[in-house]
Design a protein around this nucleic acid. Structure first.
Lengths: 245, 245
DNA sequence: GGTTCGAAGAGTTCTAGAACACGTGCATCC
DNA sequence: GGATGCACGTGTTCTAGAACTCTTCGAACC
């Protein structure tokens, strides 16, 4: 009757079906954009518009320099039960141990600096810990704190005192809110070595900004957990309310 | 240092500032895209990318054939306190009166038919009411009910009995859930006449589907309220839980 | 008074490239 | 062993148009 449906919508629909039907699995890499444009018989710009549609639907993820990937399915559902991914997610009845790898002062990357509102070039405190489940390395956690807080907290026995407790009982700081982002990454060399697996394997990366009641950022946590991939953000409110199904 | 910031980001930022500083007010129409592209010295495609950014941020609204408009500010915040927009939003301590304009059986439009699961071409019951605040017309509400329910309810004294009460005490039907969509429209002639304003003025239109505990759709409400513009949907659960800030 | 039709204005889709920027991996160098 | 640098593959930004569709509004027509 009428071909009034935009071309890029049709392309998006085609790809959507391939993803739905399993022809393209979660995590799979699509052909590169120029190739796709060619095979659909459209311009790069048009193809990119189709990809933009799918990206807004969280069906694909585009990574500069790497490629376009099929995203993980419907995270929203799982995330409701996620609670605090970073730390105490691991308290599932297993034998959980924490090994402090060390503390340092470093110049943070942009994300950390932004989260902690640290001035350009200023150093921040880092606490690096390894979580072991059943004696096996499970996650690598780097906790960044503003310099001054770090200097105070560094004197605590972090080997036996959880960071949250040290903040609360030593400095009187209580975490009131957190914003967490979980994404999928490939492990770098250092992270892989600490976790006892090979570099480049897929892993969760959780970035969490915890703030006190006044909204002041207190801790930036970055956690790596070897595993599958997905990406989601969500707000947490303490004390955690009952899981709303 | 480096102009590595994409051009369309700079354009978006410029427009963002104009909106923030009030140079462009909510509801104002921007220059047309070709004009904007020309004045920014970029291609139409590039300008459109800037607009796409702002649209995703809900700062502007683009309407095919009409123009690009500054969106209303931060609706998400207000909607939390919206409760039942359709009816009892008006119970704010003002003098609220209800005038029944009439009842009819009509062939519903597609949206109503779909919501009430009415067969093609079947008639449904309509109750039309005017809400007056302080003697001044505030909103026009059309409540659609399935034919059979309508025939029962038509015998009630709707001038003095709220529709919800009539449903509950006369038919034993209790509303358990509702799904509400609020959008911005321009008033048609009839609606404008009833509301005592001129046709074409901007108004809220709220469409609400109320269902009983069994999930059966009971009432479709469509409410017009002259005012500003926005669009949002949200789920309501009865009994309404306390407002989570 | 209502209806129909068409022109004008505005957003949308699309082409065919060219140049740029980012991540990775490998080779090289200390 | 670790740092540096470069090439390659891939996504991103941008140009300069042309053609299409949607909405409104007024004029002409019942």
């Amino acid at each position: 009757m009428n071909a009034r449906v935009p071309r890029y919508h049709r392309i998006a629909e085609t790809l959507r079906e391939k993803i739905r039907d399993g022809e393209l699995r979660a995590g799979a890499r699509l052909d590169n954009q120029r190739q796709l444009a060619k095979s659909f018989g459209v311009t790069l710009m048009t193809l990119r518009q189709a990809l933009a549609v799918l990206e807004r639907e969280d069906l694909i993820v585009r990574r500069h320099g790497l490629g376009t990937f099929v995203a993980a399915p419907s995270i929203d559902y799982d995330i409701l039960q996620l609670r605090r991914f970073a730390g105490d997610l691991l308290a599932l009845g297993e034998q959980v141990a924490t090994r402090v790898l060390g503390t340092r002062f470093v110049v943070p990357d942009r994300r950390v600096a932004l989260a902690l509102a640290a001035p350009e070039g200023a150093r921040v405190f880092v606490l690096e810990r390894l979580r072991l489940v059943d004696g096996h390395p499970m996650s690598l956690q780097r906790s960044y704190l503003p310099r001054q807080l770090g200097e105070e907290i560094a004197r605590a026995d972090l080997e036996t005192t959880p960071l949250g407790d040290a903040l609360e009982f030593k400095l009187g700081i209580v975490i009131a809110r957190a914003h967490e982002t979980v994404s999928a990454v490939r492990l770098g060399r250092r992270e892989a070595r600490e976790l006892g697996c090979s570099a480049g394997v897929a892993a969760f990366e959780s970035e969490r900004i915890s703030s006190d009641a006044g909204g002041r950022p207190v801790v930036f946590d970055r956690v790596f957990i070897p595993g599958d991939r997905f990406r989601i953000t969500r707000e947490l409110h303490y004390p955690l309310e009952g899981a709303t199904s």
